[in-house]
Structure formats: C-alpha cells, structure tokens
Write a protein that binds this DNA or RNA. Structure first.
Lengths: 226, 226
DNA sequence: CCTCCACCAGCAGGATCCGCATGGGTGTTC
DNA sequence: GAACACCCATGCGGATCCTGCTGGTGGAGG
C-alpha cells in the first residue's frame, strides 16, 4: 500500500515510517504541509497520514480541505496531540476519515491505516487518473491538462494510462513493451521513444513544468516535480 | 443517511439514536447481534454502529466478520467500553472501519459516522451496462454475451451503448443520429440500418432470444424479452 | 572530447473502419 | 392480391487514421 506521511516531528516520522514499512507498505514522507499537499495532489496514494498541526502555512486541516476541493477522495488519518473533542470533530468535518491522538500505540495506527486502505477504491474501479493538473478519464477516454482537452491516439492513450498508473515510479521499456504493446520480445527499434516523444509533444507543450521525465538507462516516469 | 445501531444498553441506544436522528439521519435499532446481523444483511444501510460486546452468541466482531464474508462492505464503527489497544486492533482487523471507546462525546460519534458515510460509493459512475446476458464494460470497452467476448467496432460500440442506456425504451433514428453520429440532419441514407444490422449479426447470432428489436416506423429497442 | 543514449520529424505502408448502394424480404394498406 | 413503404443484408470503395521505422541531431555522462 502506498502511504504518504506528513509529519514535522522527525522522531515520530521515523518511527511511523519504519513501522509501516515493516508491515509491508511503501511510505513517502513530507515534513511540511506544502510538500505534503504537493505530493498528495500529484501522486496516487492509498492513504494519507497527516499531522494535524504542521509548520508553515499549510496545516493538516487546510491540506485536506484543499485536496477535497480538488476532488481528491484519498482517505486521510489525522495524527494529533490535540485531544479535545472539538479538534477531532473539526478534523473529521474537514474531510478527514479518522483521527488518532498522540500518544498512540503503533499497532492501533497500523490497524486504522489498513482499515482505511481496505475500503476505498477496493472494488471500486478507478475511472479517472490524475497527476498534477493532468487528468485521464477511462470512461470517456479523454485526456485533459489544466482543463484543456488533449486529443490522443489509442496507443498513446494506453501508454499514458500505464505511466499514470505508476505515477512517481520509473517504468522500464520492457514493462511498456509488455503492457502497452503486448510485445514479449525486443523489437530492436525505438518505437517507445517515438511514442513518448509524441505524447510529450501533446502534453507538455505550452506548459512550464513537464510531466514526463526521462530516466536515463532505465525508462520513463510521470510526475509533477522536475 | 440510513444508520443501523446495534446496542444492548437501552440507555446508550436511546441517546445515540436520538442524537443521530436530530442530525437528520434515519436510524434502525437492534438490541442484539442476531437481529442486527439480520437487518444489516437484508437491508441496505450507509453505516453500521455496533457495540463491540453484545448479548447472545453474536458479538460485534463476529457480526462484522459474517458480513464481510458475505461480501458486504458497509462501513462499520465499533462502540465499546473495551479501551485496550489490543481490543481496538482486533475490531479493526476484523473489518471494522473505526473504533470509538465509551465514554465518548456525541459530537465525535456523529462526526465519525458522517465521515464513514461520506466516503463510500458516493458518486460511483456506472462502469458496466447489462441487459439480460449481454454486458458492456465501459472501462475495458468490451462486450460480452453469455460470457463470450464479442469484438465490436467503435461506432458499433457507441450505438450499443446508447441502446443499452435506454434498454426497454424505443430509440428513434433521429436520436441515434444525434447521439451516436453527431449528425444534426438526415443523411438520407440507411447508415443506421447497416450498423444495427452488423450489431445484430454479432450479438444475436447463435442465440435463441434476440436482444435488438425493430419497432416499425419508430426505431429500435434493446431488451431481453421478445 | 568522445560516446552513447535519447529525441524528433518525416514517411509510407497498412489496416481499420465507415458509409453508400443495391437487391431482397416483410409487413401494411387499399 | 398488388402496390407501397419500411427494413434487412452484403459487398465494395474510399478515406482517414494510425502506427512503426529510418536517419539525422542534440545532449548528457564519462
């Protein structure tokens, strides 16, 4: 399970991250709200674990409200030293799904995180993928960036879908050949390069931040940051 | 929101039920696990609020396990006097979604219940259409009848989708021209007939009961019966 | 500086797909 | 029963669209 932990206390962060990883999950960590929001918005996580209070302008509640405003429904667990009922209610009302107060037992955190991850899109097939301001709608077979529709060919669509399903991760050429081309051998050509190029042309043209990144000697990766 | 409350303590039950109702929800109450399980299994609730310990053979955890075993994914909030971490973990692991210990503030219960109800299948777009043994999967763009895959061309797919979205209703040629061909005039040809014919050929061939029916002087209709 | 890797523009083959026309069938009406 | 209207099926031609390859260029890394 891919989990994003936003926590400024380094000690707590280390502890939680380690524990979740030992339970077999992938954990990304952000130390402040701004970075957390950015990551949460640009990559697909199964669960968000947020400290209620964070340094900088963006605290936990603010972060969730922003996400929800963007249509992001990723389940959120708040972690907080604020134990007052009012605080908890505030967190949940803002769009949080659970609220755990410090100090907490790690076993309970784990159980709650897994409970959150268990429910959401388990069974509900994803119908739209999102990376930063790029959206791909599986139903209408439509691609939009910053609200502007982008025409894409079938193969390009499959390619993009595969990249977006692994946003933030490197996708190797071999994987692409297997999954997008159904090739189980090396065609000895640069088919992939060509299609990636075409996709780039359509997606990143006219935008400052490119989304498709080359990982030399490895493959490609799609994500927001450079 | 439809909520099922399973709680043996009459006093707590009354208190919770009243509060939830005042918040605008519909509440059913069961005083023991057996009745609760029966209700939960037979009616559709948005959220279940379960006492962790219940009289009779069926306690809260048992109830959830049974439901989950039946494929029921209705969100569950446990209410319990057992505060030990182990107990909470047990409840969550059994398939619970949240765990609140008594005594609790009603405001928090309400917030948590609403958080649970907020998340589930709210707004799940239809991803597959079904008419008799004919299925159309919008995501994979796949058509199957009686389990056997049927290859369909893009335009045929759009045509079939439109017919199935209006299953049991007559679809006029004009509607089809508008919605499937984006024509806003009469092309004076039999384009539609041709495509319907092709679709019939693929769908109804080899099956006793045809699904696509002609409505003379009106249009077409898809449905199971003759 | 050299080498390798990746990028991109252009090209041409191919395949798919689509719409039309025709001829035949069936139901309806007089 | 004949004429008509509506609908069905098949084959064909065309056009678009898509795709993959080639080959030269640019840039990163060593």
């Amino acid at each position: 399970m891919r989990i994003l932990l936003v926590e400024d206390d380094a000690e707590v962060a280390r502890f939680v991250k380690k524990g979740l990883q030992e339970a077999g999950h992938t954990v990304e960590h952000a130390a402040n709200g701004r970075d957390g929001l950015f990551l949460a918005a640009s990559e697909g996580f199964d669960v968000l674990v947020l400290d209620r209070m964070l340094p900088g302008g963006v605290d936990g509640v603010r972060l969730v409200e922003t996400l929800r405003g963007q249509g992001n429904r990723c389940p959120v667990l708040f972690l907080s030293a604020l134990t007052a009922v009012d605080e908890r209610v505030k967190g949940l009302k803002a769009g949080g799904d659970d609220y755990l107060t410090k100090p907490f037992a790690f076993a309970e955190l784990l159980a709650r995180v897994e409970a959150l991850g268990r429910r959401p899109s388990a069974e509900v097939p994803t119908t739209r993928l999102k990376v930063a301001d790029l959206e791909l709608d599986l139903l209408s077979r439509t691609v939009t960036r910053a609200g502007r529709k982008i025409e894409v060919q079938p193969r390009e669509f499959r390619l993009l879908e595969h990249l977006m399903r692994h946003a933030g991760q490197v996708v190797t050429r071999t994987m692409l050949l297997e999954k997008v081309w159904d090739y189980h051998f090396d065609p000895q050509t640069n088919v992939i390069d060509v299609h990636v190029s075409r996709l780039r042309h359509k997606l990143d043209k006219g935008f400052d931040r490119p989304l498709i990144h080359t990982v030399r000697n490895a493959g490609y990766m799609i994500r927001a940051q450079a």
